[in-house]
Nucleic acid binder design. Sequence first.
DNA 1: ATTATTGTACCATGAACATGATACAATAAT
DNA 2: ATTATTGTATCATGTTCATGGTACAATAAT
Lengths: 128, 128
Amino acid sequence: MAWELEADRPIYAQLVERIQMQIVSGYYPAGGKLPSVRELAAIAAVNPNTMQKAFAELERNGLIVTQRTNGRNVTEDTELIETVRRNLAGELLQTFFSKMKELGYTREQIRELTDKGLAQADENEPAG
Amino acid sequence: MAWELEADRPIYAQLVERIQMQIVSGYYPAGGKLPSVRELAAIAAVNPNTMQKAFAELERNGLIVTQRTNGRNVTEDTELIETVRRNLAGELLQTFFSKMKELGYTREQIRELTDKGLAQADENEPAG
DNA sequence: ATTATTGTACCATGAACATGATACAATAAT
DNA sequence: ATTATTGTATCATGTTCATGGTACAATAAT
C-alpha cells in the first residue's frame, strides 16, 4: 500500500521520518533486515532514487547499516535507537507546548485539553 | 528582524502559518491593518513575490481582506478567527497524541510526560 | 559457471520554489 | 495636479526535488 505523503514538503524527508519512526517503534527491529531500495520504493510508491536518498540520510545518523551487496539492516545499537526515540518524543512535547502557547493557551488550558484528549482515548479503548 | 525559516519546506507555506499564528494569537488584531507586501517582505527578509503568494493564500481562507490600493486588513470576523484558533489547537493535540502513540508511548506515559513538562513550565514561570 | 539481487552512480526531464527585476493601474497622501 | 504607496502581473534565472531510464561492480543464490 502506497504511503500517505504530504505535498507541501520533500518526499525524501518524509520517508526519512517514516522509516525512522518504524525503527524506533520496533516495526523494523534492531539488527533486522530492511527491504531493498527497489522493494521499499515499490511499497511506498516512490522512485527508487528518492528512496535511496532517504536511506543515505538514515545511514548518516547511524540508524541503519549497509552491506554493499546484501541489503541493509537496522543497527544493533538498541541504546542508540532508544535515545532517538526519547529525543523524538521530547521534540514532540516541546513543539506541542510552544505552539499551544503561541496560540495563547495557558498551562492550565493545555492541561485541560490534554486530559480531555486522553480521556477520549480511554472511551475508545478503555482496556488500554 | 528576519523570521526563522526552515530549509526543508516551502517558505511561502511557513509565512502562511506564521501570519495565521500572529492573527489568531492577537498580534494582528481583528480588523487591524497589516503591513504592505513590500514592508512585511522586508521585515521577514524574503522576496515580495513570496510574501504576495503567502497573502494570496491567507485571503482564500478568509482571514485577511484586501483593499486594492489601500493595503490589507485582518478580517473583522472574530468568530472565524476563534474557530481557526481552536482548529489549530485541535490539530496540534491530535498530531501530538498520534505521533506519541506511533513512538510506542501509552496514554499513561503521555500523561506523565505532559505533567512533567507542565511542571517544569511552572518552575520557570511559577506565577503563570 | 550462471543468474539474480544488491547498492550505487549517472543523466535527462519536468515541476515547484525563491529570487531579482520591471512594470502598471488605482488611489491615498501631499 | 503631483507624488508616493498599494496590490498585482510578468519575465528570466537558478536551485531543489522527483521521476524515469540506464548502467555497473560485487556478491548471494542457483
